[in-house]
Simulated scan of single mutants.
Amino acid sequence: MPTVVGLDPAVAEALRARLAEVADSAVVSIIEEVPSYAGAWSGRMGEVIRNAVQLALGGFLTLATRQDADAPKAPAIEGAYQLGRGEARNGRTVEALLAAYRIGARASWRDMADAAVEAGVDASQLARFAELVFAYIDELSAASVAGHTDELESSGRVRQRNLERLARALLTGAPADAINAAAQRAGWEPPGALTAVILPESQVSHAFTALDPGTLQPTDDVPGLPEGLASLLVPTTGSATSRRTVLRALRGTDAVVGPSTTWLDASGSHRRALRCAALGLEGLVDSDDHLAALVLGADSEARADLRARVLAPLADLRPSTAEKLTDTLRSWLLHHGRRDAVAEELFVHAQTVRYRVGQLREVYGDRLEDPAFVLDATLALA
């Protein structure tokens, strides 16, 4: 700001005497002409704006009476910066803020110019005075824009971190009151349901472009999640249509999609997606299509023990014979004893099936008709 005015102290004092009047006029003009500030005069915001304008004008008058171009402006610049941050917190756009500066500068210049002329300022000094006014306003508005930008970036980072914490609380099954508090801190509106999705970290960016904007992702480690995989929580309605939409959005990925649950029970969806991912299936996997496999794999050790107990009567046979009879028993159970269906599945003649089933009856006896044994054998061999 190279311009130097060097106002006579008497002129500066005359202008300072009208400072409150000029500030009020500027605030009224801003409130009347900038829609975002409509109705602000009677509230706290009106007082904030009025004080900011007075601080700016007071700083300007101090500057205008100095003989050097590098007079300190720190208080006014800092005030403008904080004003910008406050306006961002109040939800006003940077465009509205700049419009307020433009209109406030115009109104302030009009009133201050009138006062300066009345105080005897000559034309050449008045021209320098105008140049200084608008250069000063440019600096203040730039500081306010910087404050506005910094506040948005800061609040954006804070909200993102709160969303990440909410996601982790949901995935780890935190208490409902803690989850509700986390959602409020993040400003996140709970959906009708949530669906957990597990996919490679390399595919997360692609998924985010196609999924609901409210999708959550924790960045901290999630217990039980294998390295290289990421967890997402996708807002849904819980309907079949909503689920199909999620599956369509994830086409081309290796995502595992858990069931839709109420949002507070999202950890259940995540646990099932994890178990489904452990099955080693390839491509896009809908966990709803693999419920039987999930049930059978829920306790692999128990299933191995059950299999060993079911097949114990075959242990004394030759390995090749035991293997053939095991395959026949499995197919016979799954096809409910339909000999032709068993023969088709095993690629053998129906008479061969009849012979093998006879062998099984010799080994197992009446147990083949016992519902409890049939259930155990079906689960063990399925």
Results as ranks from 00 to 15, higher is better:
residue 167 A to M: 00
residue 168 R to W: 15
residue 168 R to A: 11
residue 169 A to F: 11
residue 169 A to H: 09
residue 170 L to Y: 02
residue 170 L to D: 00
residue 170 L to R: 03
residue 175 P to I: 02
residue 177 D to R: 15
residue 179 I to T: 03
residue 179 I to G: 01
residue 182 A to M: 05
residue 182 A to C: 06
residue 182 A to L: 05
residue 184 Q to M: 04
residue 184 Q to L: 02
residue 184 Q to V: 05
residue 185 R to S: 12
residue 185 R to V: 13
residue 185 R to P: 08
residue 185 R to G: 05
residue 186 A to F: 02
residue 187 G to D: 12
residue 188 W to G: 02
residue 188 W to Q: 01
residue 189 E to Y: 07
residue 191 P to F: 03
residue 192 G to N: 12
residue 193 A to F: 13
residue 194 L to K: 05
residue 194 L to C: 05
residue 195 T to I: 12
residue 196 A to R: 02
residue 197 V to R: 02
residue 200 P to A: 08
residue 200 P to Q: 03
residue 201 E to W: 04
residue 201 E to G: 09
residue 203 Q to T: 04
residue 203 Q to P: 10
residue 204 V to D: 12
residue 205 S to E: 11
residue 206 H to T: 15
residue 209 T to G: 13
residue 212 D to Y: 06
residue 214 G to K: 12
residue 215 T to H: 02
residue 216 L to S: 02
residue 216 L to R: 04
residue 218 P to K: 11
residue 218 P to N: 07
residue 219 T to P: 09
residue 219 T to L: 12
residue 220 D to F: 09
residue 221 D to V: 14
residue 227 E to Q: 14
residue 230 A to D: 09
residue 233 L to M: 07
residue 235 P to A: 00
residue 235 P to E: 00
residue 239 S to T: 15
residue 245 T to D: 15
residue 246 V to A: 08
residue 248 R to F: 11
residue 248 R to W: 12
residue 249 A to N: 04
residue 251 R to C: 06
residue 252 G to T: 12
residue 253 T to M: 08
residue 257 V to Q: 03
residue 258 G to S: 03
residue 262 T to N: 05
residue 263 W to T: 02
residue 266 A to R: 00
residue 267 S to A: 15
residue 271 R to L: 13
residue 271 R to V: 00
residue 271 R to K: 14
residue 271 R to A: 08
residue 272 R to S: 06
residue 273 A to R: 03
residue 274 L to T: 01
residue 276 C to W: 01
residue 277 A to D: 06
residue 279 L to Y: 07
residue 282 E to T: 01
residue 282 E to C: 03
residue 285 V to N: 07
residue 287 S to D: 02
residue 288 D to G: 12
residue 289 D to F: 09
residue 290 H to M: 06
residue 292 A to H: 06
residue 293 A to R: 08
residue 293 A to C: 07
residue 295 V to E: 03
residue 295 V to R: 06
